[in-house]
C-alpha cells in the first residue's frame, strides 16, 4: 500500500532529518512509528503527504508516486491528523470544518452532508456538529480532527501523536476509535502503551534512520533495544516486571 525506498530529507540548514529510509506498509496494517524527540517522525509524515519535498528517494501510494503533479490525488488517498487539533480546526463550526475536505473534493451538497454526518456518527460526536471548535475540550477537538480526515475516505491515515494532551477517558476513546478504523494507519507516538494496544507492528526511528522494525510484541517487549533508542518499556509492561 505504502512503499518507501531510500528516502532522505535535509532541513534548509543542512541538518539531515531522514536518511535513506525504506519501508513498506501493507493494506490495512496498523503500524506505530516511535522514536525519541527529534528522531524525524514529523518530517517523515510531511514527506509522505507531500508537504515537504524529499532530497532523494521514492514514495509510492500503491502505484502512485508522491510528486508535485500528483499531490492532489495523494491527499485524497492519504489523510493526516495533526498533533495539535487547533492547527487542524480552523472553521467557525464543527460541521464546516468536517465538510472542508469533501467540499474541496467538489462533491455535491448532499454528498458532503452524507459524508460529514457519517463521519460524525461513526465517532459518536454528532451532537457537536453545530458547536464552535475553539470552545470544545481537547478530547472533543481530537475526535473532530479525526472526523475531518475520515470523511475524505482515505486509504491511509497518518496520526501524529493522537493521544497527546488527553485525559485518560479521552485517550481511551481515541484508542477505541483507532482500533475500529480499518484503513492502513501509521501512528507516530510516544505512547507505547497505546501502540501496544492498537498496532500490529512497530518501526523505531532513531536519528533519521530505521533502528528497528518488527511485530509489536517483539519490539516493545525488548527493553534493551528500547533503551538503545532512547525509549523505555511501555508502562503496562514495567508494572508487570
Amino acid at each position: 500500500m505504502l512503499e518507501i525506498s531510500d528516502l532522505s530529507y535535509s532541513y534548509p540548514d543542512g541538518h539531515q532529518a531522514i536518511e535513506k529510509i525504506s519501508l513498506n506498509l501493507g493494506a490495512g496494517e496498523s503500524v506505530a512509528l516511535v522514536g525519541a524527540n527529534g528522531a524525524g517522525k514529523s518530517s517523515f509524515f510531511k514527506l509522505i503527504i507531500g508537504i515537504a519535498a524529499a532530497s532523494s528517494g521514492l514514495i509510492k501510494i500503491d502505484e502512485l508516486s508522491v510528486e508535485k503533479k500528483t499531490l492532489k490525488e495523494v491527499r485524497q488517498r492519504v489523510g493526516m491528523v495533526f498533533q495539535n487539533p487547533d492547527d487542524q480546526l480552523f472553521m467557525t463550526k464543527v460541521y464546516d470544518d468536517v465538510a472542508f475536505g469533501p467540499r474541496n473534493q467538489l462533491l455535491s451538497d448532499s454528498e458532503v452532508d452524507e459524508k460529514v454526518m457519517a463521519a460524525l456518527e461513526q465517532l459518536d460526536i454528532l451532537h457537536l456538529k453545530d458547536r464552535m471548535p475553539h470552545r470544545l475540550s481537547g478530547g472533543e477537538k481530537r475526535m473532530i480532527a479525526i472526523a475531518t480526515v475520515l470523511c475524505m475516505d482515505p486509504e491511509l491515515i497518518l496520526f501524529d501523536e493522537p493521544s497527546s494532551f488527553l485525559d485518560p477517558k479521552a485517550r481511551r476513546k481515541v484508542i477505541q476509535t483507532l482500533k475500529k478504523l480499518t484503513m492502513t494507519k501509521l501512528i507516530a507516538t510516544h505512547d507505547l502503551d497505546m501502540a501496544l494496544e492498537v498496532c500490529d507492528r512497530v518501526v523505531i526511528l532513531n536519528k533519521g534512520k530505521i533502528f528497528a522494525d518488527g511485530p509489536v510484541k517483539e519490539i516493545l517487549y525488548d527493553e534493551k533495544l528500547l533503551l538503545e533508542a532512547n525509549l523505555e518499556l511501555p508502562l503496562g509492561l514495567q508494572k508487570i516486571n
Binding site: 493526516m80 495533526f82 473534493q105
Partner: peptide, 22 residues
C-alpha cells in the same frame, strides 16, 4: 508557525485557493 501549520492542514484536505466548492 501556527499559520503555517494551519495552511498545511488545509492543503492536506485539498485546499488549492480556488474556492471552487463555493
Amino acid at each position: 508557525d501556527r499559520a503555517e501549520n494551519i495552511y498545511m492542514a488545509m492543503k492536506c484536505r485539498g485546499y488549492d485557493g480556488k474556492f471552487l466548492y463555493a
